[in-house]
Design a protein around this nucleic acid. Sequence first.
DNA 1: TTGCTGAGAAAGGCACCTTC
DNA 2: GAAGGTGCCTTTCTCAGCAA
Length: 363
Amino acid sequence: MPSSRVRARRGRIARRRKRTIPNHNDSRTTYNEHFYFVLRLSRIFMRAGPMDLDDRTLRRLKLSDLRLFHAVVQWGGMAKAAAHLHISQPAVSKAIATLEQTLGVRLLERHSQGVEPTQFGRALLKGGIAVFDELKQSVKEIAFLADPTAGELRVGCTEPLAAGLVPTVIDRILREHPRVVFHVVTADPATLMERELRARNIDVAIAPTAEIISAADVDVETLFDDRQVVMAVPQNKWFRRRNITLADLVHEPWILPPADSVIRASIIEVFRTSGLAPPRNHVVTFSITLCYQLMASGRFLAMLPLSMARSHGGLPLKILDVGLRGIPRPTGIITLKKRTPNPLARVFTSSVRELAKPLARGR
DNA sequence: TTGCTGAGAAAGGCACCTTC
DNA sequence: GAAGGTGCCTTTCTCAGCAA
C-alpha cells in the first residue's frame, strides 16, 4: 500500500498528464505536427460520418500509427507490413487494434489471406496521404528558407511542353537555383490530373487546360493558346517557298498524332475546313523524340504547338505560313487547391507565366 | 538552471492461441 | 498452413519533482 504522500504525488502527476499531450515515444512528432494532424483528421472523420470524436480521442492519434496503417494497407497484410517495417507482426496487430479502439470504428476487414480497408479505413487513408503531403511540403518550405538555391520540385507536363516550354523554364530556374532537383513526368492532361496531381505525385502540372474537366479541388490557370501550326526544319524544301497553302502540303509526308486523340481530330478538322482530305498517315506517333528525328531529315511535316518553336530547345523548328492561324489549344498551370504549395512551385509557376507572356499575345 | 531520480506509459518481442 | 490476436514480459522514453 503506497504512503499518502506517494498517493498524493501520483494523483498530481495523473492530473497533469490529463492536461498534456501523451508521450508518443516519437521525438519527431512535435506539438505543431500533432496539432495539424489532429485538425486534419477531425475534418476527415466529420466527412466520414457522425462519430463521437472528442478532444482526448483525437489527441491519442499518432502519426506513427497512421504510417503503420498505411503500410498494412499497402502490403495487404499485417505480417507483410511488419516485415517491411522491421517490427514483429504482434506489434502491428496491437497498433492497429489500438487505433481502431481509439477511433471506435473497424478500419480493416480481416481475411484469411490478409486485410482490406473498410470505408472508415479508406477515409483515414485518404486523409493520411494529405497529412503526410502537407508535412512534406512544410519540410520543403523550411529547407527552401534555409537554402534557396536547393530543393526539389515535381512537375508534370505533356510531351510537346516537355520538348518546348518546360525545359526553358527549368533552365532559367537552375541559373538562379543551381542545386534544385527537378522530377518531370510526361503524360496526357487527364492522366496528369488524375494519377499524378490528385495522388500528390507532382507539385504542379503544365498542360492543355481545355481537356481538364473542371473540379472543385483543382485550380486551372490558362495562360496562352498553344496554337498547333505547321512546322518544318530549315532544310525542308517548303521552308523557303512563299505563298504556300495547305493544299500544296497535303501530299507531303506527315507525322500525325494517333487517331483516337483530341489533337488528331482538330488537325483533321483543319484540313476538312479547307476543303481537303486529311493527309496520308506516313507516321503516327505521340513521341516528340521520333518526331524530331524524322523532321531532321528535312522531308517530314507536322502540326506542332507554337511553344515548341518559340522555346530554345530541341530542333530549330520553323513555322510554315500556310495562311492559317492554327488550332488554338488553351494551355496553363494546374494545381491542387487547399494544398500547401512547394516554395519552388511558386518560383516555377511565376517563371512559366513570364515565359508564356509572348505566347499569350492576341489571346 | 541543470542534472538526477522514479513513476508511468508506450513500444515491441516471444510464445502461444484462434480462425479460416 | 497462413494469417491475425492475446498475454506477458522487457526496454525505452517522457516528465514531474527535487536537490545542488
